[in-house]
Design a protein around this nucleic acid. Structure first.
Lengths: 206, 206
DNA sequence: ACATTGAGCGTACACGTGTTAGCTAAAATA
DNA sequence: TATTTTAGCTAACACGTGTACGCTCAATGT
């Protein structure tokens, strides 16, 4: 059980995933991804594909996992920056935009499949986004003493804005992306102010 | 020049567009839309397709136009409801959600291609969304006396939130969609409050 | 040492695709 | 009325696709 066999299998599995990611970057999206081309780029015979995935859909779900994982790791990294001082909002948005810039095809896949045609895909992506939102909610409740309900409203709004801006950032060049980032930061701050105002409103009534 | 010929051509052109829309609703997205299947559903020979469109892409752009137009008309209708009393926010969001529910495949196409792979498509969709945002900005400036800058920030945030919620509404059943609608209305109001707070902030400083 | 497993390969098949070329017949034009 | 235009057709093409089948041969298990 030295695993030299399993190692090799995992290796070509990665080759397949990376091949698929490369092809995504090019021109066509996941929907027009071909088993044969992926296999060709991975350097294996078309039929060998089935040793690793049952479908192209299964490959796709792996890609979504991959993307979600990468994004979460990045955001965890961003939270470390917050710990040692600096604006939470600025740091998070900046990190997010950097992810979009560096992992464009992966992020595009997430966006595409978020409103794509396969329900399985949509659920998978939504799971990733929900995970992200939940962490933000926890932060708002723990650090800013928001009620769970208001925190959820706020976090959801923020995530929607940031992801949507991220989508626009895909096409943007560097200066434009910077402008977009500042724009987004201002919007998130606006939402925060709105949430605060809403909270005060509730208190006054009571 | 009675136009009986042009009439017929326009008619089968519409048949093609509607066929394409039907196929979108089914299961596969625009990317996996086939000329032959579309032609078959429209009841013409595959080769006759070229009498109406040069590419599938050209058909796709027509679909985007179609969707954008439908959405804008609906929102114009919604603004009439506002004129004869009632909350602007509630009325707009409700109308929007109704559109998503009734024209699901069309709205899905818009979302898909917004973050799709063809730049031409993305630009076309973005144009529609921008149009929508611009009208909201005008409203905020004219009716609520916001500065152009703040109005743009606010309108953009609102549009992002609403479109994103619309995407989620696609999968939702009726009660869930209603919940989502209320949720979105609350978020938009929160943003409005935030914008107002931001405006007050600016006045105080000056 | 021997038997079993399994990743990867080559061949082959049936099928759907986009697109070209040339025809027909009805509408438009002169 | 005679001529031109053109929407739609059929036939045919070359090609890429997903997948079934059976083989090899090195890594594993006994």
């Amino acid at each position: 059980m030295s695993g030299i066999r399993a190692k090799q299998k995992e290796k070509t599995r990665r080759l397949l995933i990376e091949a698929a990611m490369n092809q995504l970057s090019a021109e066509h999206g996941y929907a027009s991804l071909s088993l044969r081309e992926v296999a060709r780029e991975a350097g294996i015979a078309p039929t060998s594909f089935y040793r690793h995935f049952q479908n192209m859909e299964e490959l796709g779900l792996s890609l979504v996992d991959e993307g979600g994982l990468a994004l979460r790791q990045l955001l965890r990294q961003s939270r470390l920056q917050i710990a040692r001082g600096g604006s939470i909002i600025r740091s998070s948005v900046t990190t997010f935009m950097a992810f979009v810039a560096n992992q464009t095809p992966l992020f595009r896949l997430l966006l595409q499949e978020k409103s794509g045609n396969s329900r399985a895909f949509r659920l998978a992506v939504q799971r990733e986004v929900d995970h992200f939102t939940a962490e933000l909610v926890d932060y708002l409740v723990a650090e800013q003493q928001y009620s769970r309900e208001l925190a959820e409203l706020q976090a959801d709004a923020i995530v929607r804005i940031v992801f949507s801006a991220g989508a626009d950032a895909i096409d943007a060049d560097n200066p434009e992306r910077e402008r977009l980032t500042e724009h987004t930061i201002a919007q998130v701050r606006m939402v925060a102010r709105g949430a605060d105002a809403t909270r005060q409103l509730g208190k006054t009534i009571k």
